[in-house]
């Protein structure tokens, strides 16, 4: 044992950096939730500025993964980890992007007349946030059960997304002067739903790391939506 000390240290370093990136993404979500609640333009700008940090983390981890693959030719569990990290960080970075996308809409909403947000948006946001928190913990502990819980939770977000769409539709009908604001909320709703898809993908890589089973969770929405409906 211990014949590849430098290699082991670098693998551990990459693993720690992926975890740190996950925590940073969680922090970005927390900030986004608060900024939306308070319609805080300064906080929204800070979220967008902070995105560069998360981008840099992705690039750093990606470069380290590429280097270690070239130098050490990892196989077995080492390779499963590295292949997973490279996919995970891409989805994590997209979640952070979505926080910035939402920040843009927060700024827009703050400049318009205040309307009541869709009733289930807060719930969708906090449920998605919990998925990210659980994913970070599942990654740290290599907890397959918790990772599976994250994957299952995606269905809840999908339902909440639909409820919000319905509420937005009703609200627009009731108050046509506030179409702008409700369209902004519609986009935010959609981003939250996409963020849940990304965290589901990240969580599903945990089963590849721990068990070697490639069981990537893709959304089944397209399969559902594309069914021929005879009615």
């Amino acid at each position: 044992m211990g014949t590849r000390k430098g290699y082991d240290l670098e693998l551990k370093e990459i693993n720690d950096r992926v975890e740190t990136m996950g925590k940073q993404v969680l922090l970005a979500i927390d900030r986004t939730i608060i900024a939306l609640e308070k319609m805080d333009v300064v906080a929204a700008n800070a979220i967008m500025k902070n995105d560069a940090l998360i981008d840099a983390m992705e690039t750093d981890i990606e470069e380290r993964c590429i280097q270690i693959v070239v130098k050490q030719q990892p196989i077995a569990s080492d390779w499963r980890r590295l292949a997973s990290y490279m996919r995970m960080i891409s989805d994590l970075e997209r979640i952070a992007d979505n926080c910035s996308d939402i920040a843009i809409y927060i700024k827009k909403l703050a400049s318009l007349k205040t309307v009541t947000p869709p009733a289930h948006l807060g719930e969708a946001f906090s449920s998605m946030r919990q998925m990210v928190a659980d994913m970070v913990e599942a990654f740290h502990n290599e907890d397959l059960q918790l990772a599976e819980k994250v994957v299952k939770a995606d269905d809840i977000i999908d339902e909440l997304f639909e409820k919000n769409v319905q509420e937005i539709r009703d609200a627009i009908k009731a108050d046509t002067d506030a179409i702008e604001q409700y369209l902004d909320y519609l986009f935010i709703d959609k981003y939250v739903e996409r963020m849940a898809d990304h965290v589901t993908a990240v969580a599903s890589w945990i089963s590849f790391i721990t068990k070697g089973e490639l069981n990537i969770m893709f959304t089944d929405r397209y399969a559902r939506e594309s069914k021929d409906n005879p009615q």
Binding site: M1, T3, R4, Y7, P74, I75, A76, S77, D78, W79, R80, K211, G212
Partner: peptide, 14 residues
């Protein structure tokens, strides 16, 4: 990719 025995894993990963 996914050796079953720990000794195999240790050997093939050097």
């Amino acid at each position: 990719l996914n050796p079953k025995n720990k000794k195999t894993e240790e050997y093939i990963t050097g």
